[in-house]
Amino acid sequence: MATRRGGVGRAWALLGLLATPWGAFAEDPAAAPAPEASSQEQDLAKQVQNPVAALISVPLQDNLDLGVKPKDRVRNTLNIQPVVPLPLTHRFNLINRVILPIVAQPGLSEDSTGTFGLGDTSATFFVVPSKPGAVIWGVGPAFLLPTATDDALGTGKWSVGPSAVVLVQPSPWSIGVLANNVFSVFGDDDRATVNQLLLQYFVSYNLPKGWYVTSAPILTANWEGPKGERWTIPFGLGAGKVFSIHKQALNGSVSAYYNAVRPDLPGAADWQLRFQLAFLFPLGKKH
């Protein structure tokens, strides 16, 4: 479910990879899914909407930013973001979430030509109850690692801070919020100090046969930026489906978000289109 703004920029395209089979099942009853399969898809849909579910997933998320200042350019980021849960104790699990961005950054000044490469890596570790109640929660540290291959793609700083997530899933809804704030602790002295907030609320409504509609915008604040130019606040909507191809469970979705509040600075974008295809590996129940 997370991407980020600020020093890393956005995006290399996954366009064409996400040729998701959105078509309905054939009218022939023999081609329709078995009730058990449909139920499994609905169960998986709820799991993929839970950032701390006991579910191994490997999402490939492409973010296409449009209207990037200063010349209404395009920026693309492909986020490779595996999520791996591990047992911590008999009462708690550790959810490991990594975001590895591959970025095509346009030039942010009149005489720059842009660059392509790896951005800074995000790593978050949530401690969550192994048997959650009606309210699902997780807390842990978030890290921003200076892995960028070019100064324009990263912060040049090692950063760390707290992260938390809380959600509820009253059928057929999934409603929650995820947040972290990272602060630079050391790194290149010539680079700007990092103090960045990421806040993502998510609301999903599940439909039959694994379909869902969703809104999961990512709000960011650069507390070191000029006053009045710190926030990016998008609004938008998307749709997705959990399905299987040759017994491989997948989750595909498409969303669009308009940045209603955005800084008047180079790198800010008007719109973001988000395409995601996630490979899902459900864990067997433990007895």
Rank of each mutant, 00 (worst) to 15 (best):
I245T: 13
N251Y: 00
A11R: 08
P217R: 11
D188R: 14
P234G: 07
G7I: 09
K247R: 15
A13R: 13
N76E: 14
N251L: 09
A256W: 13
A249W: 09
D120H: 06
Y258H: 15
G154A: 02
Q276P: 05
V84A: 04
A31R: 15
T214H: 08
P21T: 05
V74F: 05
W231I: 09
F126V: 02
L18Y: 12
L108S: 12
G140Q: 10
L44W: 00
G7D: 10
P132V: 11
T77F: 00
F126N: 06
Q200G: 13
G225A: 14
F202I: 04
F281Q: 08
T113P: 00
S174T: 11
A269G: 02
V68S: 01
L178M: 13
L66Q: 01
F183T: 15
G138P: 11
L118K: 09
T115M: 06
L273D: 01
Q272A: 05
V203H: 03
G156A: 01
G133H: 05
L207H: 10
I218Y: 01
S204D: 01
A260N: 10
D190R: 15
N79Y: 07
P70Q: 07
D28E: 03
F116W: 07
L219W: 14
S163F: 07
L199I: 05
Q61D: 06
A216E: 04
A123R: 10
A239V: 03
T220W: 01
F92T: 02
T232A: 08
Q272F: 02
P266R: 03
L60E: 06
L277D: 00
Y257W: 06
G161A: 02
G210P: 00
P208R: 07
L14W: 12
A216K: 07
G225W: 05
A30V: 14
P172D: 01
T89I: 10
G236R: 06
G6S: 09
K157W: 03
T220F: 01
W271P: 03
R97E: 09
G114W: 01
F275D: 07
R230F: 03
L14R: 15
V68E: 00
N195R: 10
D151L: 08
V182K: 01
P217L: 11
S112R: 09
V242E: 01
P234Q: 13
V160M: 09
A53M: 02
T115R: 12
F279L: 07
L55T: 02
P85D: 12
N206S: 12
I80T: 12
N63Y: 12
Q169A: 08
Q276D: 05
V185H: 03
F235H: 02
D190T: 15
